[in-house]
Design a protein around this nucleic acid. Structure first.
Lengths: 169, 169
DNA sequence: TATTGTTATACTCTATAACTATA
DNA sequence: TATAGTTATAGAGTATAACAATA
């Protein structure tokens, strides 16, 4: 079944979609993603969040703690503890940012890179299993749309929201 | 841009997708969904989760506390407090299940139904804004695929998992 | 004056276990 | 023996505020 078929079949009224379903689906999937990732990362400190931090550190331009915290929706005070632990384990290092002496750039150690490589293989498999019910061809679509939405939200969060008069009733 | 176009444009290598991105996108979107829903539900107890409970109570066959807890990924002990509060507020009632005297069926009051109607309108708007970056035609696709994945995961969770030898390192 | 990172504290959420009443 | 619901408690996660260093 192609996406077009699916969309046509779903049509208006054909799918019992309801308000709030979006939030429910996110809740269920994220919970399961965390649970399964935590089951395969072994003794990696801070479980699935630790994996996300390590992945961000390896893949991005050496991020500051603040940018990591913002990107991963983790409070900066929590980020301090988390990085402390990862430095202890020899997975990352703190380096002074030459351009801003307040900031610390978090860079992976060689061991950190190798660890992430191993974890990536396991997480890739986890994500494959998690989307097992979605036809192969549609998975990329789902991932892309999800990412598109998340990117926009993540960027919006960096800019202060204009007041829109939506009070809390 | 249609889904087919998007898929073609994304092609292999065209999109910088990475392992774990799926979890990241879920994290960002769910956090924002909760935050925005909480901003519009006013003084509804238990915020966005309270909304999800009320929605489930109104839309499903009167659920038991246990089925609610399982469906919404909330611990049954937490569900007790949450329902207590909603009974206090006159939004739902506990009714004995005639077929199983251990179970309580949670049914909405008239006020509960009216409250949900109002909240639904606001949440619908929240979800529309949250997916503002996704073209109108693609939103339904995203919702459908997300739901498909979540449904499967949710059902799997009900059946005990067979051991698959995936130890924790 | 604002921001980065640190530290301490308080609060919320979550998980766990014990208990009862039913099945 | 297992399940639904309740209650109490401990633990993890989270938010908040104060502070020093720097911009």
């Amino acid at each position: 079944m192609t996406i077009r078929d699916a969309r046509r079949a779903a049509g208006p009224g054909a799918g019992p979609e309801f308000v709030g379903e979006f939030g429910w689906a996110l809740t269920v999937l994220l919970r399961e993603w965390r649970s399964r990732v935590e089951a395969v990362v072994g003794d990696l400190p801070h479980g699935s969040r630790g994996y996300q931090v390590l992945a961000a550190v390896v893949r991005e331009e050496p991020p500051t703690q603040a940018s990591l915290a913002q990107r991963l929706c983790i409070d900066r005070s929590v980020m301090t503890y988390l990085i402390d632990r990862y430095v202890e384990c020899g997975l990352v290092e703190r380096q002074q940012d030459p351009a801003d002496r307040r900031a610390r750039r978090i860079v992976p150690t060689e061991r950190g890179r190798r660890t992430l490589d191993e974890l990536d293989a396991r997480v890739r498999e986890v994500e494959r299993e998690l989307l097992g019910s979605v036809p192969e061809a549609d998975r990329l679509v789902l991932r892309r749309l999800l990412r598109q939405a998340a990117d926009a939200v993540s960027h919006d969060a960096k800019a202060p929201q204009p007041t829109d008069g939506m009070g809390r009733g």
